[in-house]
């Protein structure tokens, strides 16, 4: 992985933390990569709101698929979404 794509990943991840805080109405300071979504009170309806915001900001449509449904921690969630956003950008750029 190049340093630019790592930087890119970090930037998207930071912006996803903001989205999770805003859409799931969680205190931004409580959002750490290892935090459990369940403990943060992120429920199925919050997932939908998060995916809507991701679509608005990054232009990528993500349905609640197997991987997303299995996400347990904030990191699980952001890793999947960041990968999808990067795949989307690679396709769009290709």
């Amino acid at each position: 992985m190049t340093s630019s794509s790592t930087a890119d990943r970090d930037a998207i991840t930071a912006s996803l933390f903001d989205i999770v805080a805003e859409e799931a109405m969680v205190d931004r300071s409580a959002i750490r990569p290892e935090a459990l979504l369940e403990e943060l009170g992120v429920k199925s309806a919050d997932f939908v709101m998060i995916l809507m915001a991701v679509e608005e900001k990054f232009g990528v449509y993500l349905s609640v698929d197997e991987e997303l449904a299995e996400a347990k921690t904030v990191r699980d969630l952001t890793d999947i979404v960041v990968t999808r956003i990067q795949e989307h950008r690679a396709r769009a750029g290709a």
Partner: peptide, 21 residues
């Protein structure tokens, strides 16, 4: 329906691995 993010943008594949809506 699209906003609920339960529709697949690919294929409907019930009970299958990789299903996404």
């Amino acid at each position: 329906w699209e906003s609920l993010h339960v529709m697949s943008a690919t294929e409907c594949r019930p009970f299958s691995a990789g299903r996404d809506g």
